[in-house]
């Protein structure tokens, strides 16, 4: 049985992630858990997250999940979502600076308050709604998802990767930012596939069939 552990560290709407994975075609068992043995035993791991970075990292450390995440992010198909993507970086500017899990090289910064679009309209923060995701390279998780498809975003901070080879997609919002990263068995997205209708479910479907190779 294909078991997918959704890491539960008390932050945000984990159940919608679990429901979306369950809804994707394909036979799998989803467990929402912070039990180390269950995470280590799962075939695939999802790190979701909404909320503030300090609380997120604080809870991960309090539950002693940081080492577990470091371990499974090296060894099995691993998907980070939203704050779960940001948490993989070295540090975040949120909450006056937070050291993150340091799994991928890069950092997290706040959108500039004075950004405008091509029509010179001021851009609101959070970046909330459906924006285009431009895939930079082919990847099994993009299979069946057309180039420049729209996904649902809600965030005020964004990832700046230090390794351009890790950028799997970019999105424009006043600045061109990294909206997905891929490295070996890790894939992570800034948007919410579980709230992005058919194409979001397609991405989860791709994930539950992914062997962790490119």
């Amino acid at each position: 049985m294909n078991t997918i552990a959704v890491i539960d560290y008390g932050m945000g709407n984990l159940h919608s992630v679990a429901k979306a994975i369950e809804h994707a075609p394909g036979n799998c068992k989803v467990i929402v858990t912070h039990a180390k043995n269950e995470i280590l035993a799962a075939d695939r791991v999802v790190l979701p997250g909404v909320g503030a970075m300090r609380d997120c990292i604080g809870e991960i450390k309090r539950l002693e999940l940081d080492y577990i995440i470091q371990e499974v992010s090296k060894s099995k198909p691993f998907l980070g979502v939203c704050v779960g993507m940001q948490a993989l970086m070295e540090y975040s500017a949120e909450n006056n600076g937070v050291d993150c899990l340091n799994i991928l090289p890069g950092h997290v910064e706040l959108f500039d308050a004075n950004m405008t679009n091509a029509q010179n309209e001021r851009l609101k923060i959070p970046h909330m709604g459906w924006n285009k995701v431009t895939q930079n390279s082919s990847h099994p998780l993009w299979q069946g998802i057309p180039q420049d498809s729209r996904f649902y975003f809600v965030h005020s901070y964004y990832v700046r990767t230090n390794d351009n080879n890790h950028e799997a997609a970019s999105t424009d919002y006043g600045v061109k930012f990294t909206s997905a990263v891929a490295h070996e068995n890790i894939f992570a997205v800034q948007f919410h596939p579980e709230k992005s209708q058919h194409l979001g479910l397609k991405l989860y479907d791709n994930f539950i069939h992914w062997d962790g190779n490119r």
Binding site: A118, G129, W130, K132
Partner: peptide, 8 residues
């Protein structure tokens, strides 16, 4: 081109 306006 960027963020879409939403209908709710």
């Amino acid at each position: 081109m960027g963020l879409a306006k939403r209908i709710i």
